[in-house]
């Protein structure tokens, strides 16, 4: 196991080490100590590493990740795993605003709560939140799944495209063009897979599914009322 101490190397020291490892590296397991809420820790990784961050991180941790499994043993700031392409980012605590923003792929797990705009403009990422999400989550979500084991704040899925939203608890309100949808067998299977991947015990049948009414993003004069 290799160790990186943020207070000694700084964020650049951590990232330049992790970003330059080749895909076939034998040095796969890394521990980051004393993150101290600094931003951009472990961003832009492209090798299949396991990175354990011991403490709270600042903004954009795990952003643009490819192939790595990044675990944050603490809380995370704004934009955790933003624009992730593949791999896993796992937050053991809570995450602040815009978690998983614009994510293309991979899995983001937040054991605690996420804040507002979780999954904003998601493009294929899967996000599983053990707690609740704040307002405007999955805003303009295009693809991927957002699973919320707690409650969702106001305007869930506003102006949503084809992202799928599963919420177990209460939804404060749905955003424009977001509606509750039927849970079919394929959705139950999908949700089961996601919950399992995130180590959750919830039953898929306890969730409701939400998605696009598809009235807003294909302009039709007949739907003018929805705008």
């Amino acid at each position: 196991m290799n160790e990186l101490d943020q207070t000694k190397t700084g964020v650049r020291g951590i990232n330049s080490t992790l970003q330059t490892l080749p895909a076939n590296t034998n040095e796969k397991h890394w521990v980051v100590k004393n993150p101290k809420g600094q931003h951009n820790i472990a961003v832009g990784l492209s090798a299949p590493l396991q990175v354990e961050i011991q403490g709270h991180v600042g903004f954009y941790c795990g952003g643009m990740n490819q192939h790595s499994e990044i675990t944050i043993h603490g809380h995370a700031g704004v934009g955790t795993a933003e624009n992730m392409m593949s791999g896993i980012v796992w937050v053991k605590g809570n995450s602040s605003e815009s978690a998983g923003a614009t994510g293309n792929g991979g899995l983001l797990v937040i054991d605690g709560d996420a804040s507002s705009r979780c999954g904003i403009s998601m493009k294929g990422i899967d996000i599983v939140v053990g707690g609740s999400v704040g307002h405007m989550s999955a805003f303009m979500g295009q693809r991927g799944n957002l699973v919320v084991c707690g409650d969702a704040g106001d305007a869930l899925g506003d102006s949503i495209y084809e992202a799928r939203l599963y919420v177990k608890g209460k939804v404060a309100s749905l955003g424009a063009d977001c509606i509750e949808k039927e849970m079919r067998a394929e959705h139950i299977a999908d949700l089961e897979r996601l919950l399992k991947a995130a180590g959750r015990k919830e039953k898929p049948s306890d969730f409701k599914r939400y998605g696009s009414a598809r009235k807003l993003y294909n302009f039709s004069v007949d739907h003018a009322d929805a705008y």
Binding site: K36, G37, Q38, H56, G58, G74, G77, G93, N94, G134
Partner: peptide
């Protein structure tokens, strides 16, 4: 505004930390 400002305080690692709601 950001947690990194709080990270300097003694005991910050184990503090109860949350985001104020709108």
């Amino acid at each position: 505004t950001e947690y990194r400002a709080i990270a300097h305080l003694p005991g910050a690692d184990d503090a109860k930390i949350w985001e104020p709601e709108p």
